[in-house]
Nucleic acid binder design. Structure first.
Lengths: 242, 242
DNA sequence: AATTTTCATTTGTCAGACAATTAAACGTCT
DNA sequence: AGACGTTTAATTGTCTGACAAATGAAAATT
């Protein structure tokens, strides 16, 4: 692990990169303790604050965790699916909000990805997954539900659908796509009629998953995708008219 | 933007969270300049190094960029697809390497996602995408190619396939899945016979994309998925035997 | 008017200090 | 000897003050 001493700026970024590369290459295995801040400062020939800034960069990516005390220090963190989920969701959310991605594009991506796991979900769904989906459908039928809660339930339903595929890598990849859509979805006001239609499609999807029919699942997902985009277009048109 | 003064530990994490939330909520728009480090230190009632640690956390997530000089400071960064790609790839790579995800699981996820964009790719592919795919196929036929280079070309081929869908959100989501597989793929030694088979399937996929046949594309992708997993099983078996 | 110089602002880095935390080492008492 | 409290050393977390480097704006000069 070496840094470029000729460039006296961005030292903390260089140090972070050196340590990150060591972690990625496997030179620093999970749960390995890094040298103390003082030792790192000496190794890289920088001051302790500079080392600390580098460590905070790594901590922001969940690459290390720190512990105070005599046997404390910075340890290489095992990146859990949970941590990766969270990072992906914030990244995806910001990506969509900062790059004026059209609703159509985001929606298309989301349902394309969901269709991808339909065959696996139909094959492997457990009773627990089905129970979650049914529970969310029941929730969505409550008329007093706010639009925000309706969208949240929608996300929960689709997450159950994705998780039913029983592939954690797939769940991780799709979590970002589904959850990042929520702020966009929240901009749509769901009338009673549109909610009814969505719930019906959700029921058909749940039925198809329960029956293990992947093709039917994909069809209803496509229908839901188109209906959602149609709703969005209507909302946008109404907004422009006013 | 407030922090909890009762907990005097992890101040930089709290400050980072406060600023991050402000960015996500839109209170701090893109290219907005944050207060100077000295001002932030005063606002949050902490010292400048603490503020700096918080800012480095945000910089690690590409949420801000900093500039020195009189009119410098920290600015809210527009998260580009490029930045998001990079982050997702490192996260995905680490996730796979640190959680002994089976090759089968990762492979299944990857091809499931790719199948998802087959219909869109078949519909929207441009000549440029096809040219990249053909070029990579030609590359893969060179016998002197190392296994690493073969894998890299494989990744390039599949990225072109994904990009052909013409949906940047989809490309972003799938970049992680495809690229993160490369280290795992690199562990497989591709014999001449297996390369021949893979190239043949790549050609069939390119042909199907060119012809706009989504179903055929999906079929060949499934075949490629199964063949890849078969290869992996053979490599693992051979390794355990020795 | 154009160019150069000066200057104020801001980030980047450093040195040294103290507080808080934590586990191990050490004593002490039963 | 063993259980229990105490001390101690190591380590991170934070603060203060300082200086260097970059940079654009303002001022001075040609």
């Amino acid at each position: 692990m070496k840094i470029d001493p000729t460039n006296p700026a961005d030292l903390s970024a260089q140090i972070a990169k050196a340590i990150r590369d060591a972690i990625i290459s496997g030179a620093l295995p999970v749960d390995e303790r890094l040298p103390s801040e003082a030792e790192l400062a000496e190794q890289f020939d920088v001051s302790r604050p500079t080392v600390r800034e580098a460590l905070k960069r790594l901590a922001a990516q969940s690459l290390i965790r720190t512990q105070r005390g005599a046997t404390g220090g910075a340890f290489v963190n095992r990146l859990t699916f949970r941590d990766a989920y969270r990072q992906q969701i914030t990244t995806s959310t910001l990506l969509l909000s900062m790059n004026d991605v059209s609703f159509a594009t985001a929606c298309e991506a989301r349902f394309a990805l969901e269709r991808a796991c339909a065959p696996l979900s139909a094959l492997r769904r457990t009773d627990a997954h089905l129970a979650v989906m049914r529970a969310e459908i029941a929730r969505q039928q409550q008329p007093e539900l706010t639009d925000e809660d309706f969208c949240a339930s929608d996300v929960a339903f689709h997450r159950a659908l994705v998780d039913a595929a029983g592939n954690p890598v797939l769940s991780y990849q799709l979590a970002g796509a589904v959850e990042a859509m929520q702020p966009l979805m929240n901009m749509i006001t769901f009338t009673d009629r549109s909610r009814e239609m969505i719930v019906t499609l959700h029921q058909k999807i749940a039925d198809a998953i329960e029956a293990g029919q992947s093709q039917s699942t994909e069809q209803h997902l496509s229908a839901l995708s188109e209906y959602t985009q149609q709703l969005a277009r209507r909302v946008i048109a109404r907004r422009q008219a006013s």
